[in-house]
Nucleic acid binder design. Structure first.
Lengths: 246, 246
DNA sequence: ACAAAAGTGTTCTCCATACACCCATGG
DNA sequence: CCATGGGTGTATGGAGAACACTTTTGT
């Protein structure tokens, strides 16, 4: 896939968009023992940014965020969560906008709506790395995974947004049990533990982690997984979705 | 005090306000063993609403919220926390706006900016009940405390906003220790316990509560408080503000 | 002396930690 | 058979729940 889509109307001053509101998405995935997020790289600039976009007049924020996520990942039914709204007056920068536009062969009129002040609502999403098809938008030439441990400098306040998303993810990890959204439908206990260790940034004791997870009563043990390694074959588990509480 | 202020410019279409963004404040206080919030009642309508307002072009959301809080409480240095941004397309209602305007002797042009779609950022504040001077704004004739247990029907989605604020307050109570902001500078252990019980909506065991609070190491014991009651005089405590962690 | 509320101590349970021990697998 | 990693059991310590006991105050 990975091919740009049609030039979005949102880059022209259009009356069908809410003025002054944007959405930025921190899309988390997990692969090779590393927590990763999707970043866009703008054409010919070396500038990186979070996926995001604007809100249509007839659309609420959750819907807008979901639309953007589906565009960037080619997935539907994504777990996402609003976490904070960013509003400092200096968070945007006209020069950056011009650089991005120029590099992709456009010019922005001085009264282009993008030069208005914008307030941005941050969402984080948790996706199954293996099923995502990273898809750039019209003004970026790549959409790729970046390890949390080596995020480049991002435009505007996007580094701040990433950090706040990470803080929220860590804080909510236990209460929302949202670690499971980052794994494929079946996984081993070791994979789950690696994920927790990566998110929390610390080692956990294997045997205790196993008991804690099993005691939650939300995991179902499936067949063993033959890894081909010279050791005991681990069980596969799947997540039992909580009953829709009436 | 309690006297309306000058008619705010924000009720005319003004270019110095951000379009489509508002702030709503859930202001918590504690008195007589009851958790309370400040509500405005609009003139001659019987309609209740959260204090709120609009955001100036050169103002970030925290500043805007703080400005509104100071206007409604006559306090400065208020503890406040952003908790969620509300954006459903149907959250506002033109007829309600007209009712409120008409009742206070105004007419709204059909293209008045208030008929735009608005996205509202929710803040909750924790204040010392005893020092607040509830102050109505220009289009309301009262600003009063209401028990959490008997919140009337509010305009728009304000009941939803109150509930979300309460949920957040409960969830954060332990981790942010923000109960202390609701009490006067000195207080007894019993008052603190009543506050916790009210917020959490359940009884706590007195002796255990005492030990837990003291073990946090954030309370300083002061003199005893002579209540005049026929029982042992309780100690007063004050909150030791956490060191500004560099 | 008594009631009522504040403060302290004791016991029990539960859970997180740490670590020891068995089991399965492929080389 | 042995190295490796997966699964289970056991001892310990600390926090919370439940409750008993002591102390202080005004009537």
């Amino acid at each position: 896939m990975n091919k740009p889509q049609d030039f979005p109307e949102s880059w022209h001053p259009k009356p069908d968009l809410l003025p002054g509101i944007s959405v930025d998405c921190v899309i988390f995935g997990f692969h090779d023992g590393q927590l990763k997020i999707l970043l866009l790289e703008y054409k010919n600039t070396g500038l990186f940014a979070l996926p995001g976009g604007f809100v249509q007049k007839n659309e609420d924020l959750d819907t807008a965020a979901r639309r953007m996520l589906e565009d960037r990942t080619a997935l539907s039914k994504i777990y996402l969560e609003q976490f904070y709204t960013f509003s400092t007056t200096s968070r945007r920068n006209d020069e950056t906008h011009r650089t991005i536009a120029t590099a992709s062969g456009r010019t922005l009129e001085a009264d282009h709506f993008i030069f208005n002040r914008f307030i941005s609502v941050g969402y984080y999403a948790l996706v199954d790395f293996s099923t995502v098809v990273p898809t750039p938008d019209a003004i970026s030439d790549s959409c790729n995974w970046h390890d949390i441990s080596s995020i480049p400098q991002l435009i505007f306040d996007h580094n701040l947004i990433v950090n706040k998303a990470l803080d929220t993810l860590r804080f909510m990890l236990d209460s929302k049990l949202n670690g499971f959204n980052l794994l494929p439908p079946t996984f081993t206990m070791n994979e789950l533990q690696q994920l927790y260790e990566t998110i929390l940034g610390k080692k956990l004791v294997r045997s205790n982690f196993q008991r804690k997870m099993l005691s939650l009563g939300i995991l179902q043990r499936l067949d063993k997984k033959q890894t081909g390694a010279a050791n005991k074959a681990p069980y596969l588990y799947c997540f039992i979705k909580p009953q829709t509480t009436l």
